[in-house]
Simulated assay, not measured.
Amino acid sequence: MSAWRGLVVVASLAAGLPWAAHAAPLPRIASINVCTDQLLMTLADPEQILGLSPYARDEARSFLASQAASFPKLSGEAEDVLMLKPDIIVMGRFTKRATRELLQQQGQRVVTFDAARTLDEVKAQIRKMGDLVGNPDRADAANARIDAAVARARKAASDKPFRVLPLERRGWVSGSDSLINSLLNTVGLVNAAGALGIKYGGFATLEAVVALQPDYLLISEDSDFAEDEGRAFVLHPALEKVYPASKRIAIAEKLTVCGGPMLADALDRLTDELSRVER
């Protein structure tokens, strides 16, 4: 009889009956990078999030700035993170070396995320965070949203490979080895920065931008107010004459500054803008 009971217990464990096994608790996580902040808020349960970086509430950089207000604001240094006793600390590759080393010396599990430069890298990082927080299904759903947004943007850009120049404050241009470049190429557009010889990113003169003659400018603000000299570059009369609103595609910086689920919103914004601008 005892042997029979043993067989029943073994069979029950194999079948995964509720009383036979209990799921491990989900990890408690602290983030000290604005990009890992947003991955964490999208994919983790709220109770898993112990704190976020100093920039999590910055509306210009964080797509989820309002949501971030619900969580403790960290300094980005090691000391206040250690007080939280997290299971995992997530950060960017360029977090201060001294901070990363101190956390590791204290026995903390530190996971770093690189700056994504392609959509494939973005989707891989979403999967990585989804696995880390114990919610891979949410990561799959986020990547599916990006794929669907890519399909919509490709359809909107299907006329011809328009040349688009990503232009920011003071003439900063995102080059051919950037996330913006990947977004444009993925949907069938061409980053005109290649003709300027800019690979990662760099400044272009007003004369070079005008002479380049791209089909469109990609900017982060559609406001006509120049609050400083940096913004005044994009609103220079010479540029506004050649590139009025009908030749400018506006996508907020907070949608593209990080690689994450918000890229689906960036791509949908691109789709809307391609439907609006002059062909």
Rank of each mutant, 00 (worst) to 15 (best):
G92N: 12
L165A: 05
Y55W: 08
P244L: 05
G16V: 11
I249G: 02
A266C: 06
S12Y: 07
W4Q: 15
Y216A: 00
D228V: 06
T112K: 06
P72D: 12
P136L: 05
C258V: 10
S220L: 02
A252I: 02
I249T: 03
I126A: 02
V234C: 00
K199P: 01
E229C: 00
D224H: 12
S220F: 03
L189S: 01
Y243H: 10
V150A: 04
P25Y: 04
V150E: 06
A21M: 06
A193F: 10
I198W: 11
A211V: 07
D120F: 02
P136Y: 02
E79A: 12
G51E: 10
P46C: 08
I180Q: 03
R138V: 04
K73S: 14
Y55D: 12
S178V: 07
A232R: 14
L196G: 03
A115T: 11
A98K: 15
R97T: 08
A68P: 05
L255S: 04
I32D: 06
P136H: 09
S158A: 15
L26K: 15
P161I: 01
I126R: 10
N143I: 01
M262C: 00
D177R: 15
R100Y: 10
A15F: 12
A151H: 09
S223F: 07
P54Q: 13
M83V: 13
L13D: 07
G188P: 11
R269F: 00
V10A: 15
L132D: 02
Q104D: 05
T36L: 05
A195R: 13
A232N: 05
F225P: 00
F203T: 13
S2R: 05
L17D: 01
A65N: 13
R100G: 02
V9R: 15
V257I: 15
N33W: 13
G107W: 12
A124C: 02
S2F: 03
P86G: 13
